[in-house]
Design a protein around this nucleic acid. Structure first.
Lengths: 329, 329
DNA sequence: CTGAAAGCGCTTACAG
DNA sequence: CTGAAAGCGCTTACAG
C-alpha cells in the first residue's frame, strides 16, 4: 500500500502538503494537481486509523443490539448500516445477547478511541457507561442521563391497536406482552392500549408473561389462553401483543385451540414485520417507521460527534397495517 | 484515557517494559507486578489501532453479505459474530446490496490495513480483489483463486430432497430456483436433485425463474404453477425449492390455487430456517449447519491470518428437517 | 503557500 | 533484563 510519504515523494512535495490536499485545505493549484495525479497513479488510500491517532476520529460506529435473529433488530441494523455507509462510516456490529458483560465490553470500545460513537438497543443497567461525553443514541429506552433516545410513538400505537380492534367489532380486549420491563418506551404500548380502552369504556385485560416467555413461549401462552376459555369459547375476542413475534405465537396457539383468526378473535401485533422487509405483513400490526428511526438515530449521533446541539428524545409516528388477522371494516 | 506512557511513569519503568508485559514477553517479576498494578489503577486499555500501525494487525474482520434482512444471512452473521467475539475480534458488518461498487468498496478495506481479513458471501465478479495475499473466506462459492470456500453439501441436499418427496409418495417432481447463477455451489442443489430423480427413474422438471423472481416472485411463480395445471389439477405433486423463502412464496401461491400442502403437493425448501432461530421449522427443508459453517469459516480465516495451512474447500453435511409441508412416513 | 519537525500510542531492534 | 530511540502513517502548529 502506498502511504502519504510515497505520494509526497512522487509528487515532489512535502507530506504536509499532501495531507492538506487530502483534507481539502488550501494549496496552490499547481501542487494540488500534482498531488491528485500521484494519488491516482499510486492508488493511494488513506489509513484512517493512523489519522485517528491524531484527530481522534475513526469514522467507525458501534451498533449494539441483543441479536440480529430478531427480525425487527435486523431491520433496524440493516437501515443503520445503509445510512452510515452513505456518510462514509463503517459499522461494528455488536450482539449483546442480553449479557451484561458482553454489553459492557462493547460499550468500553468507545472509550478506547476505537469508535466515534455508539448506538443501539441495550437492556442492561450499564448506564454508568453513558457519561454524556460519549456520543450515543439509544432506541426505545429513555435514559435519565444525557443520552439521546429515538423511539416511535408507542403510546399512540397502543391506542391505535385498541381503536382498530373495536372498529373490527371486538368487545373483550386482551393485551399480552413479554420481555424485560426495563425498556420503558415499549411499556407505553400497553399504557396507550389501556388508556384507549378506558376512554371507550371497553372491557379489557392486561397480561404480562414476563421475561421467560421470550424464549419458550408456547407453554405460557397456551395456558394463559386456555384459562380464559369456557366450553371452547374464549372470554376475549380481540388481542393486541407487544410484538409481531408474540402475535405469531399467539395465533399458533389459537389455531391449536380451534379458534379462528380473525373470525373469532382479531389479533394485532406491533412492529410491522414483513418477510425480507417487503411484500405482505406477517400479521395486522402497528408498524414502526424503522427506516426513519435509523436515519434519525444516525443523524443524531453524527450531530453529537460534531458537537452540535441535539434533541433529547425524538418520537416518530406509527401506523396501522393490515395483515389478514383483523376484520376489514 | 490512560496511555502506555502514563502506565510507564506511574510504574516507574520505560514504555518498552510496559509494552513487554502487555504482550506477555519476559520481564522481571518485580517490574511485571508494578506494571500490572498501574494498569489496574489507571484502568489502562490498549489502543489496538495504534499498535496495528506497527504490527499490521487490527483484530478486526469485515463480514460481507448482500443484506441481513435475509434470515439465512442474518443467521450466518449471527454465528460469525459470536465466534469472532470469543476470539477477541471485532466485526465490521458490510451489506453489499448486490451492488458491485459497494462490494468493491468494502473489499478494498482489507488492503488499507483496516481489517485483518474478510469473509462472507459475494456475488459479483470482484475476483480481482482476492489476490491470495489477503486472508479471505467465501461461503457457498468456489473461486478459482486461492480463496477458501466453506459450503454445505448442496448436492447431497438436492438428493435428500428428492428422496424425501419420493418417500412421501410424490411421483411428479418439480425443482424451482431463483437468483444469480454465479453462486456455483448452490447450483449443485438442483444437480443433486436431478441426479437422484434419474437414479430412481422418477419424472421431474427443472424450473429456473432467474434473478428477477427474487424481488417480485408472486407473478412469476403463480404463472409457472398455473401453466402446469389442467382442470385444477397440477401436473406435479412434489416441489423442491432452492431456498426456504422461495418455498414459502410457492406455498402461498399454491394456497391461492386451492392446492393443499402437503396433501396434494409436498414442498421442501432449503436452508432450514426457523423463526428467531428456534422452535419449529417454517417449512420442511434441507437444513444447513449454519453454526458449524460459521465456526469453520472463522477458524479458516484465523489460520490464514496466522499464516498456517488451510483447506481449499470445506463441505459440511446437511440434514432433512420436518416442517409440516411433507407427509410423515 | 510550503517545508521541517514534533507528536498521536504503540512496538521493536539496539545498546548497555 | 531494561532503557532510549526510531518508526508505523498521519496531522498540525510553526517558521520561513
Amino acid at each position: 500500500m502506498a502511504t502519504i510519504k510515497d505520494v509526497a515523494s512522487d509528487a515532489g512535495v512535502a507530506v504536509g502538503t499532501v495531507s492538506k490536499v487530502l483534507n481539502g485545505q488550501y494549496v496552490s493549484a499547481e501542487n494540488k494537481r500534482k498531488v491528485e495525479e500521484s494519488v491516482r497513479r499510486l492508488g493511494y488510500q488513506m489509513n484512517y486509523y493512523a489519522r485517528g491517532l491524531k484527530t481522534r476520529y475513526t469514522y467507525t460506529i458501534a451498533v449494539i443490539v441483543p441479536d440480529i435473529l430478531n427480525p425487527f433488530f435486523a431491520c433496524l441494523v440493516y437501515h443503520i448500516e445503509k445510512e452510515l455507509y452513505k456518510l462514509g462510516y463503517k459499522m461494528f456490529l455488536c450482539q449483546s445477547q442480553m449479557e451484561p458483560e458482553k454489553e459492557a465490553y462493547y460499550l468500553r470500545l468507545v472509550s478506547q478511541n476505537k469508535v466515534d460513537g455508539i448506538m443501539g438497543i441495550t437492556f442492561n443497567e450499564n448506564d454508568a457507561y453513558f457519561t454524556g461525553d460519549i456520543p450515543a443514541v439509544i432506541f426505545d429506552r429513555h435514559f435519565r442521563g444525557p443520552v439521546c433516545c429515538i423511539s416511535s410513538d408507542n403510546f399512540r400505537g397502543g391506542e391505535l391497536a385498541a381503536e382498530r380492534l373495536l372498529a373490527g367489532g371486538s368487545r373483550k380486549l386482551l393485551y399480552i406482552r413479554t420481555g424485560s420491563s426495563l425498556s420503558s418506551e415499549t411499556l407505553k404500548r400497553g399504557q396507550g392500549f389501556a388508556s384507549k380502552c378506558q376512554e371507550r369504556h371497553a372491557s379489557y385485560e392486561m397480561l404480562d408473561l414476563g421475561d421467560d416467555a421470550d424464549f419458550y413461549p408456547e407453554q405460557g401462552i397456551l395456558e394463559a389462553l386456555k384459562s380464559r376459555m369456557e366450553g371452547g369459547v374464549p372470554s376475549f375476542d380481540g388481542i393486541y401483543t407487544s410484538t409481531d413475534g408474540l402475535a405469531l405465537e399467539v395465533i399458533k396457539q389459537l389455531d391449536h385451540l380451534q379458534i379462528q383468526v380473525p373470525r373469532d378473535v382479531q389479533v394485532i401485533g406491533h412492529d410491522g414485520l414483513r418477510r425480507m422487509n417487503r411484500g405482505d405483513y406477517l400479521v395486522s400490526s402497528i408498524a414502526q417507521p424503522v427506516e426513519d428511526m435509523a436515519r434519525a438515530g444516525v443523524e443524531c449521533l453524527l450531530r453529537q460527534i460534531r458537537k452540535e446541539e441535539t434533541e433529547d428524545i425524538t418520537i416518530l409516528p406509527v401506523t396501522f397495517v393490515e395483515g389478514g388477522t383483523t376484520r376489514i371494516t
